Simulated scan of single mutants.
Amino acid sequence: MSLAATNETLLSFTVKDVVPITCDYPSDLSPSNGQVMAVLVDMETTPALGEVNNLSQGISINALSFKFIKAEGTTTGTLSTNMIYNCLTDRSQFLPDRIGPAEKVSGLVLVDVPSPLAGTLIFEPIQGGDAFEYAIK
């Protein structure tokens, strides 16, 4: 994948799965959009990431990097809600806050998506660049 700052491949990733998650954090919050899902991701950055001025400290991948388009074509508002930040007590499962140059990481990103879940989950890096779609039925 290329980011907007360069035509070089700086990041490769694989969405391994998108699965429902049961929150265990003691809270009265409920999902704003319908349900919390975990996006299970493998990511690897190249050393060239460190040579790009605004990316030399790494990139962030979180719920703001995703959007969801329902099967009928309606785009869901933000997938980043209070619920996803107050869902799991064990935060070691998440992707790191920043992924630096020449790093390989695996983890999950939580998103608050519509229920019933049918449509397309789209990954668009906050820093710009190629977008990728993951169909969910």
Rank of each mutant, 00 (worst) to 15 (best):
G73D: 09
L88A: 04
L49A: 08
N86L: 06
V105L: 05
I69V: 13
L108G: 06
I69Y: 08
E103Q: 13
Y85T: 11
F94L: 13
S106P: 00
G107E: 02
L110I: 04
S80I: 00
T74K: 15
P47M: 04
E51K: 15
G50Y: 06
T81Q: 06
E103G: 00
K70P: 01
N86F: 04
I61R: 04
T120Y: 02
S60K: 09
E72A: 08
A63N: 03
F68E: 05
L110D: 06
E72W: 07
T76F: 00
V105F: 01
N54S: 13
G73S: 05
L108W: 01
T74Y: 07
T89G: 05
A118S: 15
N54G: 09
L110F: 06
V105K: 14
V105G: 02
C87L: 02
F94W: 01
G100R: 10
F68K: 09
R91H: 10
Q57C: 14
L64E: 12
S65E: 12
A48C: 04
S80Y: 08
K67S: 15
I84P: 01
G100H: 03
V105D: 05
S80G: 03
E51P: 01
S56C: 07
R91F: 10
I84H: 03
P47L: 01
L110H: 15
T89W: 07
L110N: 04
N86M: 07
A118D: 10
V113W: 04
L64C: 09
T81G: 06
A102E: 11
I59W: 02
E103D: 08
N62E: 09
G73M: 05
S115I: 00
S92V: 00
I59M: 03
I61D: 04
K70N: 15
G73T: 07
R98I: 10
D97H: 10
A71R: 14
I99Y: 03
R91I: 14
L108I: 12
L79W: 10
T89K: 09
R91M: 15
N62D: 12
S65I: 13
T74C: 01
I84S: 01
D97N: 13
K67R: 15
N62G: 14
S60I: 15
P47Q: 11
L110M: 05
L55G: 05
Q57F: 13
C87G: 09
D90F: 04
T74R: 13
K104N: 07
L95Y: 06
G73P: 07
I59S: 06
T75F: 10
S60E: 11
T75S: 11
M83W: 07
E72R: 11
T76I: 01
A118M: 09
V109H: 01
L110P: 12
E51N: 14
P47R: 11
L79A: 08
D112Y: 01
I69D: 08
L88N: 05
A102L: 03
L117F: 14
I84Y: 03
S106N: 15
I69N: 08
F94G: 02
S80W: 02
N54T: 13
P116I: 06
L110R: 05
